[in-house]
């Protein structure tokens, strides 16, 4: 912990970065993401096992966008998000100073993108057993049951878009759901609108989701929507050998093809 603070403090003091993105103590024993702009404030910077939010999200916010340099305390999920954002031309390496934190909570020092790629490869990834179990449970259902399951699961959705707001990959200035000419997705949070919204979001994240689970955690009505993009990222890995968040240069399963892609369903 002291090591993270030391690095952050130095970076700010030397003006290499103007913002350090990390966590501070919140109310009632909670933690909250915070922007640190002064070296003396770094005393408040914390990192503990409660700091699970994917703060890569904030790299696209104005405070970071306007700074020349940004440091970020980065757990494996955050590192993968950063790499994917870089692959999608959303951030540049010169600006970002990654202070790596391993899945065991140890400081891994400052990582450049190359080191971050190596770091990402060594950190545990893949689906959690409980997520895998849920996917398998759904897959074992009949077609009608699956449909009913999802319609039911989405029915409490109030279209608050917290899933979108918490997702580092949902960075579009104007989301498809806000397009009204044509109105691709119904605005109202009725069953149809909910199914189409979550389906569209899953398709947009196919091959890009880094499996941080932030969407599920932020959902106020506990929809297991992360399962959709988890299932797809697992599928994309199997099918196209493509995995998001491991590479800082361009990769996207859906912006590529091979002549031999499996097409047994095409007549």
């Amino acid at each position: 912990m002291e090591e993270i603070k030391k690095i952050a403090r130095e970076l700010l003091a030397e003006n290499k970065v103007q913002v350090v993105l990390g966590f501070e103590k919140g109310t009632a024993n909670k933690v909250r993401p915070a922007f640190f702009t002064k070296a003396e404030d770094i005393d408040k910077l914390i990192y503990n096992e409660a700091c699970i939010h994917n703060i890569a999200l904030y790299l696209k916010k104005d405070t970071c966008q306007h700074a020349k340099g940004v440091a970020i305390t980065a757990t494996p999920n955050v590192v993968r998000s950063i790499l994917q954002l870089s692959a999608e031309n959303q951030i540049t390496e010169e600006k970002i100073h990654i202070i790596g934190i391993t899945h065991e909570g140890k400081c891994a020092g400052i990582l450049d993108f190359k080191a971050a790629e190596e770091f990402s490869k060594t950190q545990p990834k893949g689906l959690k057993p409980e997520d895998k179990a849920l996917i398998e449970k759904i897959q074992a259902m009949s077609l009608e049951e699956r449909f009913d399951y999802w319609v039911e699961a989405f029915s409490p959705c109030i279209k608050c878009y917290a899933c979108r707001a918490s997702c580092p990959m949902c960075y579009c200035g104007k989301c498809n759901v806000e397009t009204n000419n044509p109105q691709w997705i119904p605005v109202a949070s009725h069953k149809y609108g909910n199914v189409e919204w979550h389906m569209m979001r899953a398709m947009h994240l196919a091959g890009r989701c880094i499996n941080c689970g932030e969407c599920n955690r932020s959902c106020p009505v506990d929809i297991p929507l992360n399962i959709l993009s988890y299932m797809l990222s697992d599928f994309v890995l199997d099918e196209f050998d493509s995995e998001a968040g491991l590479n800082s240069v361009f990769t996207s399963a859906l912006s590529a093809y091979t002549v031999v892609d499996k097409e047994n369903f095409i007549k």
């Binding site: 999608e88 031309n89 960075y171 579009c172 104007k174 912006s255 590529a256």
Partner: peptide, 15 residues
Amino acid sequence: PDYSSCTGCFLCQPV
């Protein structure tokens, strides 16, 4: 200040 709804992800470029 938006100039375009394009986010500049350039996932369209290789296709």
